[in-house]
Amino acid sequence: MNQMLLALWRYRHFMISAIKADLRTRFNRSKLGASWMILQPLAQVAIYAIVLSSLLAARLPAGKGAHLSYAVYLIAGMVPWSLFAEVVSRSLTMFVDNAGLMKKIAFPRICIPVITLGGALVNHALLLMATLLIILITNHPVTWLILWVPVLTMALLVFAAALGLVLGVINVFVRDVGQVMNVVLQLWFWMTPIVYVADVLPEQFQRVVAFNPVAPVIQGYQNVLLFQQMPPFVRLGLLLVGSLVFLGLALYMFRKAAPELVDVL
């Protein structure tokens, strides 16, 4: 463990430059550049907001400015979800994508997942800033509760990192995982109260949502950004403890698998 941290510290320059390079590559030669990182999820929010608030208006809290609140609700859920989805889907292919590098150059393999996390986190930070701007523009209050956001993000990141690491390693040996996970993520999105409010669900579905590890974080975001409430502490605490154990297992598996990764890639 200590060795891993030491290796990461020694390679910090490389990881920072890899994250920068990755961002640069993604938006190179596009006119709007990095703003696509924000525009894309926001466009998605706009689509959901228009489609759903006009179709399902009855199911949402009524009143003056209701559709604006719904937009904020959507954003509050979409921002953490897109962090989760990005970490998982990029982790899936991170070893396969870096096969050439891993086979030719000796560097601590743990750098790869950290670079993936770092890139997603930068993305998330920008999106979060845009979100705050939208909240202010739409006349919703921003309170001290916002200080919970880093805690929520951390809990989500630990879970996403652990899941991503396990899936990324398995995907090297069984490529089907990548295909399956794309479908699973879609399903997962709809099993999470992001575009709808959990209360509107039939009871049996509510139980499913209760076991959804991402739900407490999403709910926490919605609470602190829109509803001016505390995040759901108990479920969040459980998630954090569970995720840390999961991450420990994932790292153990990664250590065992690391020598074989290169042989198979």
Partner: peptide
């Protein structure tokens, strides 16, 4: 800078 970082510099 990037590839020197990869070599640990």
């Amino acid at each position: 800078y990037h590839s020197s970082g990869l070599m640990g510099f």
